[in-house]
Design a protein around this nucleic acid. Sequence first.
DNA 1: GGCAACTCCTTTGTATGCGAACCATTAACC
DNA 2: GGTTAATGGTTCGCATACAAAGGAGTTGCC
Lengths: 140, 140
Amino acid sequence: MTKIPEDLPDCTVFLLGKAYQKAHGDFQKRLKPYGLTNMQHLVLEGLWYQEGLTAAELGKMLILDKATLSGVLERMVEAGWIRKEQSPDDRRIFHLYPSAKANDMKEVLIEERKKANGELLAGFSLEEQLLFKRLLRVLM
Amino acid sequence: MTKIPEDLPDCTVFLLGKAYQKAHGDFQKRLKPYGLTNMQHLVLEGLWYQEGLTAAELGKMLILDKATLSGVLERMVEAGWIRKEQSPDDRRIFHLYPSAKANDMKEVLIEERKKANGELLAGFSLEEQLLFKRLLRVLM
DNA sequence: GGCAACTCCTTTGTATGCGAACCATTAACC
DNA sequence: GGTTAATGGTTCGCATACAAAGGAGTTGCC
């Protein structure tokens, strides 16, 4: 059995990466039966919060690179989760809307996110949960 | 419009992802002048801790998928950061060693990691830093 | 000895993630 | 009003990530 270097458990960048890796993986598995990825779920949440956003606005809201978002949106249109509508005012822009299929599953999908969050924080006391979120917000 | 039960700033999976995104990006930028990536730096730290590890052992230590590691190691050999030596006892296995070039930069590179950690936690009190790391360890 | 099971690693396929270059369009300004 | 700057989106290149399958090698067990 290989031991972990003493330094690693003290390296916050490493710890943060691994905590994210686990949280992301768990959420991904939870979403797999729906044919959605973590990222695609996030996009839907953004559009449920405000329909008709452009890719640039959505990227700003979700802190995502436009190059990344471009591919994600294309696959989501392909899979019928969202709709792109070119703006008549500015032909560079597309307004984004969740599809009927997405809206039908809205409640269930939001519930899955809540469950994922609950599962992630299961080992924390209520106080620790609030504190943890507060600290994460500082880092962003 | 239907309201969202839980706002994005309260979604821990999201917060964790964004905190990681920022930490990872900052460390990546810090390492760029050396021609190293975050992941490659991590591999070197693992091998400095114990030379001659196999890919499987290193993956276990760093919690990395073997498929991911395979490509990373290939690029690191290509770039002259590490050396792969086939084991005479078991021809499936490669033992991994940091190159002379890597060892020459060991002190500097470890210093960069420390600086990255310091920068990341700059907004936290000493108490918060310890608490944050403790909470992250629970999640792994 | 021999074959099944297991292990190590690679390969393939899909999905991020971001910098940089690029095209089309719109805004800004002289 | 025409050149320049800025913006929105796509594409390319590179580097993770991981599931799944596959090839090569080793072990276990009768």
